[in-house]
């Protein structure tokens, strides 16, 4: 067990390192001179000395690998440089925005769990019934509608027409509802269908048949045997679901003017705020990697066969 986890960790660390290098190299290779850009944001007409100062501050006067090393060292100590656009340390700005994104992501996750499990069970229990078919249609639609369109549909209906919810912005629980729905739509659809399929498979297993013959009803079967066994394949996809969540957050934050890191990312990119781009992308990558690692571990705990594979 420990060996399996150890191996996973060993793979994750170099991946993260390589990722950080990729991000750094990508952003560094962008056209234009960031030091002039930084200087220009400070004064309208920067003098050569001011540009040189900015250059030194950004370590752009050093060789490329040194630059990367310094950046990485800074990243480890929580210093990712000055934001061009926000005129303050990148880390501070991210800190300010992080809470909003976490709030949105958790609200969405909560929705996913609250919705996906019952819907999945429903789909399995009403297998081939119109309920199941309806759920399939709904899942297909959820997977096909772009978040930015779905978001505006909700705004038109729930906010403008029915005046039930605030249009946008972050102002307490009501304002969280629509963005959370948009972010949660796709993962809910996918997970509920996965769970349904998984449950159906479990239902066809011998021990369930035995249970059924003993007189347990579907609900009892689901509760006693189904969910735990059906969870294993679902867990496999949680990492990917989380990736979808991260992406959904970006578009959703734009549509709903949600002041989170997703918005910040798009802002940073369109303002060419290089240190900010590097920081937010590194953060997204790290979180994604850690979540996937955690999912791996969870999977290992749930399914012993995988642990054995690690021993090969």
């Amino acid at each position: 067990m420990a060996r399996y986890f150890g191996r996973r960790l060993l793979v994750a660390v170099p991946t993260l390192l390589a990722l950080s290098f990729l991000i750094f190299a990508l952003v560094s290779s962008a056209p234009g001179d960031p030091s002039e850009e930084l200087a220009r944001r400070r004064t309208q007409d920067p003098k050569p000395a001011e540009i040189a100062e900015a250059k030194a501050e950004l370590h752009l006067d050093r060789p490329f690998l040194t630059q990367y090393g310094l950046w990485l060292k800074g990243a480890l100590t929580g210093d990712l440089g000055p934001s061009f656009a926000k005129k303050r340390p990148v880390v501070d700005e991210i800190k300010d925005r992080f809470g909003a994104t976490v709030e949105l992501a958790f609200a969405a996750l909560l929705l996913v769990v609250v919705m996906a499990v019952p819907l999945g069970v429903l789909g399995a229990m009403f297998h081939r019934h119109w309920v199941d078919q309806g759920l399939r249609v709904w899942a297909l639609l959820s997977a096909s509608i772009p978040g930015f369109f779905f978001g505006y549909l909700l705004i038109i209906e729930l906010a403008t027409r029915l005046k039930l919810l605030p249009v946008a912005g972050r102002q307490g629980l009501p304002s969280l509802i629509m963005p959370a729905i948009v972010v949660a739509a796709l993962p809910t659809a996918v997970i509920s269908r996965l769970l349904r399929a998984s449950l159906l498979e479990v239902f066809s297993d011998d021990y369930v048949r035995t249970a059924r013959s003993k007189g347990l009803n579907s609900f009892q079967i689901v509760a006693r045997h189904g969910l735990r066994n059906a969870a294993i394949p679902v867990v496999t996809y949680l990492g990917t679901v989380f990736g979808g969540l991260l992406e959904g957050v970006v578009i959703t934050e734009i549509v709903f003017a949600w002041p989170g890191v997703g918005r910040l990312t798009v802002e940073a990119i369109s303002q060419r705020d290089y240190p900010m781009i590097q920081a937010v992308v590194l953060m997204a990558g790290t979180i994604y990697l850690v979540v996937n690692l955690a999912v791996d571990m969870l999977y290992g705990v749930l399914d012993p066969r995988i642990r054995l594979e690690g021993r090969r």
Partner: peptide, 11 residues
């Protein structure tokens, strides 16, 4: 190791 949309945005 990166969600595709985020990578795509940067690129």
């Amino acid at each position: 190791a990166l969600p595709t949309l985020i990578l795509a945005l940067v690129v």
